[in-house]
Structure formats: structure tokens, C-alpha cells
């Protein structure tokens, strides 16, 4: 099992619980859509799985590594080596070019494969945009760069938080197709947070979060 979320609890500062004994599993190569209302804790759960935030109770195990004992360095290493992230806001590094953004994560993880990066740039329609800066790209183009950056490292687990939430319908379909095909091709697992039932329906499994529980 690649990801095992076991009875995880999380409260916001002030004590309001957001996740109550949430449990979830994800196998290698599997795709899972996490749906729920705004404020239901979807993004929080995704952040916990990405080792971006700490939880109050339970345990998360990623590729055999329990997250709760990890310190800041251990969490950073895990993010570098084992997971990739795609956010709704793209979150590219504004000071780097498209080409530098694409290869950034792979280089951080010492897994740069220039052939694979070039192939990704070609397939994502970014080959002619490599010297541009993110601010000069459209939303769809920026999200394709974010996906390229995430896939360039050949992650075991891709975590995506509303990756098409900021895009129009056409761009959204385009981006999702590309992401799913790349996930399938590399054998990565995908945990995707979405509001859209249509998108959720295209993934292997679905989980719905409500009232701090998986229902």
C-alpha cells in the first residue's frame, strides 16, 4: 500500500475539529477522487498526506514511512522524493522560467531526466514557452507547467488540489486528460481533491468528506 491514512484527527487553532478519525488507503497506480463541500477538510487532508502540515492524532504512512515521527527535515525530504503537488493556484515559482520551473522539482530530488522533461514539455504543449516567465502564460498554460513540474520527478504519489478549479471548461478538460494520461503512463498514484462529480467519475475510486468523516 502506498498511502495509508489511519484515524487521522486535525483541529484548527482554537480547537474546532476539521478531521475526525479519517481513514483512507491508496495503492500504487491507483487514482482516488476526494470530494466534499467547501470547508469539509479536503484540502487539509491533502496537505497532511503531502507532509505539509502535522496532524493531532492517528497516523499517515507514505510508502512505508510513518509521518508523525518526522521532523521538519524529514518531512521536507519526503516531499522532495516521494510526492508531487498540483494546486488550483498553480503556485509556480514566478522568478524562474517555464523551463526552469518544469525541471525544478526533479533537480531538487536529484532525479532530473532531460529526455523525459523535454518529452513532457512537448506533450504538454510547452516546448515553445520554455524561456517565458509564468506571468506571461495563460491559466491553462500555467497549470500545464505545474503538472509538468510534478510529473518530471516521476512521483509515486501525485496530490492535486482542485487542479482545474481556475480554468474554463475546455482548458479544464484538456488539463485533466493530460494529467490522467501521464499518471497512467508513469504508474503514479493520484489523490485528487475536486468539487466536480464529472471529474471524480473519471477516477478509479471516490471518497466523500463530510462533517470531518469519510462517508
Amino acid at each position: 500500500m502506498l498511502l495509508n491514512i489511519d484515524k487521522v484527527q486535525k483541529s484548527y487553532p482554537g480547537g474546532r475539529p476539521v478531521l475526525r478519525d479519517v481513514s483512507l488507503t491508496l495503492d500504487h497506480g491507483q487514482t482516488l477522487a476526494l470530494t466534499g463541500e467547501s470547508g469539509s477538510g479536503k484540502s487539509t487532508l491533502l496537505n497532511l498526506a503531502a507532509a505539509l502540515d502535522s496532524f493531532d492524532g492517528g497516523e499517515i504512512t507514505l510508502d512505508g514511512t510513518a509521518l508523525s515521527p518526522l521532523d521538519d527535515r524529514g518531512r521536507a525530504a519526503l516531499r522532495r522524493q516521494s510526492v508531487s503537488l498540483v494546486f488550483q493556484q498553480f503556485n509556480l515559482i514566478p522568478s524562474l522560467t517555464v523551463g526552469q520551473n518544469l525541471s525544478f522539482h526533479a533537480r531538487l530530488a536529484n532525479r532530473e531526466d532531460t529526455g523525459w522533461s523535454a518529452q513532457l514539455a512537448e506533450r504538454l504543449g510547452l516546448a515553445d514557452l520554455l524561456t517565458r516567465y509564468p506571468e506571461n502564460l495563460s491559466g491553462g498554460q500555467q497549470q500545464r507547467v505545474a503538472i509538468g513540474r510534478a510529473m518530471a520527478v516521476r512521483p509515486k504519489l501525485l496530490l492535486a488540489d482542485e487542479p482545474t478549479g481556475n480554468l474554463d471548461e475546455t482548458a479544464s478538460a484538456n488539463v485533466l486528460d493530460l494529467m490522467l494520461s501521464l499518471v497512467a503512463e508513469t504508474g503514479a498514484a493520484l489523490l485528487l481533491v475536486t468539487h466536480s462529480q464529472d471529474i471524480a467519475a473519471r477516477l478509479d475510486r471516490q471518497a466523500h468528506l463530510a462533517g470531518g468523516h469519510i462517508v
Partner: peptide
Amino acid sequence: PQIAPVWALGLTR
């Protein structure tokens, strides 16, 4: 917004 993405990609605080 400049440092958060880099942190997310695996650099410690």
C-alpha cells in the same frame, strides 16, 4: 507566495 512553493517542493523552513 515566493517561498511557499519552494517549501512545498521539499526545502525546510
